[in-house]
Simulated assay, not measured.
Amino acid sequence: MFFLRITVLLVMLIWTIDKFVNPGHAARIFEKFYAIAGVGNTVVYILALIELIILVLFFFGIKKKYTYGLVFVFHGASTLASFPQYLSPFEGTNLLFFAAWPMLAACSMLFFCREDDTLLQVDTKFS
């Protein structure tokens, strides 16, 4: 469970850092995959900060029901938003999108088995 948590964290953290480093990239993703145009840098930075806070809480196992749940929902939305890429897997880099499915399975496993994930977490009275 710890290894799943760390690897999910790693992927999500890189996506979050990308929002800070290249907010224009995040804005293009919002437009292409979520049909949300005109997302400015300030909005991207705020979303990135919220994601970062959630990821820190997720890492330490604080409020697992909510943090594990949000990570699951974030990644689930991302996976489903990419649906058109799954219909043409051999065009361009679309094959890479299929890596989202095992990670979604890891997120679901972490959420549904969150009480069993206890390694290197803060005192459970905060969970």
Rank of each mutant, 00 (worst) to 15 (best):
F74S: 01
I14P: 01
L47I: 13
R5V: 10
D123H: 06
L57V: 07
R28C: 03
V73E: 06
I50K: 05
T124R: 11
R5H: 05
A48I: 06
V44C: 03
F30H: 09
T67I: 12
I17Y: 14
Y86D: 02
L96T: 13
L4R: 13
A48T: 02
A26I: 12
R5K: 11
L120P: 00
L57K: 08
A99Q: 15
S78N: 06
G69R: 06
S82P: 06
L120A: 08
F59Q: 11
A77I: 15
E51Y: 12
V21W: 15
N22M: 11
A77Q: 14
L57Y: 13
T93L: 09
L52S: 02
L57M: 13
A48M: 00
F33R: 03
T42C: 00
G92M: 12
F58V: 12
I62H: 05
W101T: 03
M109T: 12
L96Q: 14
V21K: 11
L4V: 09
I29V: 15
A48L: 06
Y45H: 10
C107L: 03
L96I: 13
Y66S: 07
M12H: 04
L104D: 01
A77V: 15
L49Q: 04
F98H: 07
C107T: 06
A106V: 05
T93M: 11
T79E: 04
E51I: 00
P23M: 13
P23H: 10
L120T: 03
T42I: 02
I6S: 07
V43E: 04
A35W: 14
W101V: 15
A27G: 03
V44H: 08
T118F: 00
L55G: 07
A26H: 09
A106L: 02
S82V: 08
P89N: 07
F59P: 03
V8R: 04
T124A: 06
P84Y: 12
I29D: 09
